[in-house]
Nucleic acid binder design. Sequence first.
RNA 1: GCCCCCAUGGUCUAGCGGCCUAGGACGUCACCCUUUCAAGGUGAAGAUCGCGGGUUCGAAUCCCGCUGGGGGUACCA
Length: 517
Amino acid sequence: MTDFHSPDARAAAALPLDLAEVRVRFAPSPTGSLHIGGSRLVMYNVLFAHGQARRAGKGGKFILRIEDTDQKRFVEGSAEGLMDGLAWLGLEWDEGPDIGGPYAPYVQSERQHHYREAADQLLANGHAYRCFCTPERLQRVRDDQVKRNLPPGYDRHCRNLGADEIQAKLDAGETFVVRILMPLEGETRFVDLLRGEIVFQNDKIEDLVLLKSDGYPTYHLAVVVDDHEMDITHVTRGPEWIPTAPIHVQLYEALGYEMPIFAHMPLILSPNGGKLSKRDGSAALADFRERGYLPEALLNYLALLGWSLDGKTEFFTMADLLEHFTIERVSAAPSTFDRDKLDWLNQQWINHHLTVEDLAVRCLPFLIAAGTIEEGPHDATHPTYGQVLVAAGLLKDRIRHLTEAPDLMSYFLADELHPYDSALLMPKRVEPAAALGMLKAFREVLPEIDLASHDATEARLRALADELGVKAGQLFMPIRVAATGRTQSPGLFDTLAAIGQDRVARRLDAAIELLEG
RNA sequence: GCCCCCAUGGUCUAGCGGCCUAGGACGUCACCCUUUCAAGGUGAAGAUCGCGGGUUCGAAUCCCGCUGGGGGUACCA
């Protein structure tokens, strides 16, 4: 049997020699927002198909399919939101509900007859049976089992109904579901790409429902049928599907389908334990977008959460990932979501991998939303772009999230300063009178200084500190606060230059008034 | 309860039987740079590789058990 401890062996198993094209799919149900874990799964799929497979000289396609077989949980607009999120991340699909493809339709509710045919085939060849049990009876059975401390599950009540009994119920118009007829003996095994062989005892597996009474298939029937019909070569999905994988394996065999390669990807855990969920602040991709994360940083972080190239390389662009990702290096162990590291990566991306122009443009929507600047196009043609660009240049290595832009840039972009505490004007160990003196002294020489010149401003201010007999820092702080309304800012001379002669003068006057009043 | 998966510092990870006195990164702390805050630089603390048995001349690496964590247990996906 394959030695899955060897990376080479896993690599070989991932891309069998006779495989011409990798076809992987992401098949979400349109029941809510796209989870961060789903986003990572899509990325791994894309990297595997478009990266690893193509590098190996094979074809590689990533398919998007909507699994809307549960009418009750359907949420309007969720499929659109999902595609929106993936597009934002820059993850593209080759076939899907919106762009079509050779295997259309890519929406399960439009593929009904396939499932019904498969169910009929299973019914005919004895791998499935009709079950007429009512939901009430099933609930009763379960309650009873729980009460008696038995493992809850369907008691296979309808498994051995006679042909005439079945006919009678059908004639009477009783509704039914179709259940898989699991073998009661033996075992079902399959190879998971990340874990090696997994074995299940057949008698421990339930006769799960394949076709619901409303005629819709359950996930189990639908995935198997669609994955087969869409020629999916690698079934990638979350680890929560491992327990029902034997059902799928049985179905592949019973239907005479060729077995795909299974790869159950790892789970993303919450720092509080358990699956990462809404309760952990945010688990939805859209939340990260709103909170000012760069898609590049998120992708970078997600790639590293469960995968590594060499344990040392930290920065990856999508292009890097396409060049280096291999699915067999994805860890089977679940990993905990670490907000701190994501934040660090986001800041690193802003500080070192984004151009100032790019940063400025990305800040625009956040500045507009906050009302810091006027409505306008989200690009360099925005009327205030020039000022935003200057501010972005100064704040580039101080911004962690784009959402901070409105606050950090406010004193560059707005004419009026937010009210601030006059105490800020007086640094520690500086008397109020001294602070006032310094501000007045600066105000007096301001007209002689060309703020646009960093060097001239610095020379004059340092000289002024000497004249006043104080340390440079003691003089700079009151000026900084007067000009910006806060104690933290980019370098003082650049900051003054960006704010401009007139506004600096006005803000100085206001500060002096504040101290005198 | 039953079934299944996983297990290297707080977190993400490297490691594929000797190169490991276990490497990198986040976080933490200290120092340097410095007009503040960042960024950057240097350094430190932090892991008896979950525990116990094997196999082997030799194990973080292979095997078994245990423990811990997680997942599943629907006419949801």
